[in-house]
Design a protein around this nucleic acid. Structure first.
Lengths: 108, 108
DNA sequence: GGTTAATATCGACGGGTGTCGATGAAGAAC
DNA sequence: GTTCTTCATCGACACCCGTCGATATTAACC
């Protein structure tokens, strides 16, 4: 601990409460969903198109189909994307509010 | 692959280029730096204070000093924070441009 | 019904990550 | 000088995560 009492404490001190652990974990969980290059690229594609078929994602990335499905599940669990099945195909789209909320945590 | 040719392709198709792998990795690397509750809380404290002494961070979290030092290194390597030593103490502060750049990737 | 296609799920493997104690490096204070 | 304090680094451990092949599920089509 710093013990110089003659200087004003400019930095944060032990009196400043850190983020509530629950909030920190919730935020980190959402950032973790974007902490992978493939998921970033998927979100990027979804941002460019209203909707995206899984079959196109499978074709766009040089990864196995289960791997893409896994990444989509991670994004889904994080609330960043949502999906709907129409017939045999599954379509994914961004959840704009989730992205906006995450953006707000990085500044006003 | 979707084979219905009679319907217009509303979603992204194989013709849309995904993010360049290098860009995806760079973005994911920065998000990964925020993919931990402790690091989110550290950034939060640094955002509330201009500067922060490591000794205060050590006192604020119920983690060992090496662990805090490790998290600070991760944030430093990601370019989100920078540090300077003054005497025995090390002071950390946010890199506003880095946070702003990350926010911009989540929308204008 | 049976067959084929599109997704999701499961199990397993290898590499990455958070955590700690122990140690090292650099100053300040005596 | 020596000692103490602050911080960074190292090694090791347990656990998580991205990836794959194999399998299950669901639906369309014949």
């Amino acid at each position: 601990m710093k013990t110089i009492a003659t200087l004003p404490v400019l930095c944060c001190g032990p009196d400043i409460e850190p983020l509530a652990p629950a909030e920190s974990e919730a935020l980190a969980a959402r950032f973790k969903a974007l902490a992978d290059p493939t998921r970033v690229a998927i979100v990027n594609r979804l941002a460019a198109a209203d909707e995206c078929c899984v079959c196109d994602l499978n074709a766009a990335f040089d990864l196995s189909q289960p791997t893409i499905s896994h990444h989509l599940k991670v994004l889904r669990d994080a609330g960043l994307v949502e999906s709907s099945r129409r017939g045999t195909w599954a379509y994914y789209r961004l959840v704009p509010e989730a992205v906006r909320a995450l953006r707000q945590t990085l500044g006003e």
